[in-house]
């Protein structure tokens, strides 16, 4: 059996037994796509919400100034209600990029909503044959979780085209730093991030593969073939626009689905909560909610990490081993120095 057929048979096996997917695929070695070199091409596509060609120009110009080429996908400028084209169009555009050996990375133009409509129609054989970085966050959490769980492929959790400022010279320092971190991650630099130490952090030192993303999206993947297994890993979560009671319910969901009990560490990013309705005051803060849920465990916990729907949102290498250090007032997340070789 040649490699292609072998991979296809594994993929078919997984598709037939989604419940077993995570377990049967666990021994898959980590696939780190080749890091980008000057002249490499990044595709821009809209698997979820829509965006215009004009709106992606700041991102296109900046990324080209980094020495990469850009290929604009067919879905940029398409619009079907809130989506960047119909399900068929979005799936086709992403599929074309997945299959294209000439692309080194696929940058999702924006989040919004829509990846779950197309995820089960995508054929990832091309991605394994030609590994490439998939970049995005928010609704793109679906893709990042899916390729981590099913293929153990690393990706980049970061800002997308809609977060690039129109005038780069007027970008706020943290915004500029966040966007530049995408370049660093893609170029293969070892990533290291410092959060502002929070007295409510739980001190400790942890090592594990970094997984996570948008908390609500992670919750809605439960029970599906894209669900993540967090045992032994460093989990990061962020969210926006949720009520505090809903944040509490989602942390309970993590707990009740076994996603908190065996973590190596927990990284809590930005949580922009919706104000309580009058008479429905939840009283607890996000820090209270998390602290209460992780009380039975002893792993390190870091709050206010710069990841989320905010200006300061650094590129994180998803699926890659990291070290979380919250000892002695530190709050540092760094990529483990030993880099695993990419697939030939």
């Amino acid at each position: 059996m040649n490699r292609k057929n072998f991979l296809s048979s594994l993929l078919t096996l997984g598709a037939a037994m989604p419940a077993l997917a995570a377990k049967t695929r666990a021994p898959f070695p980590l696939i780190t796509p080749p890091y980008l070199k000057p002249g490499d091409t990044i595709g821009i596509t809209c698997p979820a919400g829509n965006i215009t060609l004009k709106e992606i120009q700041p991102a296109v110009q900046l990324i080209e100034s980094w020495g990469f080429r850009i290929r604009v996908g067919d879905t940029v400028g398409k619009k079907d209600a809130i989506f960047g084209g119909t399900d068929e169009e979005r799936a086709a555009d992403l599929q074309k990029m997945i299959n294209d050996p000439g692309l080194a990375a696929i940058l999702c133009a924006r989040g919004g909503y829509g990846v779950v409509h197309i995820i089960d129609r995508l054929d990832f054989v091309g991605l394994i044959q030609h590994p490439k970085w998939i970049i995005g966050f928010s609704d793109i959490t679906v893709l990042l979780c899916h390729i981590h769980t099913n293929f153990n492929m690393a990706s980049v959790h970061s800002k997308m085209c809609n977060s690039f400022p129109d005038d780069w010279s007027k970008a706020e320092p943290v915004q500029a730093k966040s966007i530049l971190s995408i370049r660093q991650a893609l170029a293969g630099e070892r990533m290291e991030y410092a959060a502002v130490p929070n007295v409510q952090n739980r001190a400790g030192l942890a090592e594990g593969v970094l997984v996570g993303g948008n908390l609500k999206t992670i919750e809605t993947l439960a029970g599906t073939p894209s669900d993540i297994d967090t045992a032994g890993k460093i989990l990061f979560v962020e969210d926006t626009g949720e009520y505090l009671y809903s944040v509490d319910r989602m942390f309970w969901h993590l707990e009740r689905t076994g996603k908190l009990g065996r973590l190596a560490g927990l990284v809590v990013g930005g949580f922009k909560v919706k104000p309580d309705d009058p008479g429905e005051e939840f009283v607890r803060t996000v820090v209270d909610i998390v602290t209460e849920r992780v009380k039975p465990y002893s792993y390190p916990v870091c709050f206010d990490f710069p990841v989320g729907h905010q200006k300061e949102n650094y590129a994180l290498k998803y699926g890659i081993p990291h070290i979380l250090d919250t000892r002695d007032g530190l709050a540092r997340l760094s990529e483990k120095s030993v880099t695993l070789a990419p697939l030939p």
């Binding site: 989604p18 809130i82 909503y113 779950v116 409509h117 995820i119 089960d120 809605t220 993947l221 439960a222 029970g223 599906t224 073939p225 894209s226």
Partner: peptide
């Protein structure tokens, strides 16, 4: 509505 859609897709994708 988008969240109703998302939850229904979750039910569907989890075989329900």
């Amino acid at each position: 509505r988008y969240n109703i859609d998302r939850m229904l897709h979750q039910l569907k994708r989890s075989g329900k």
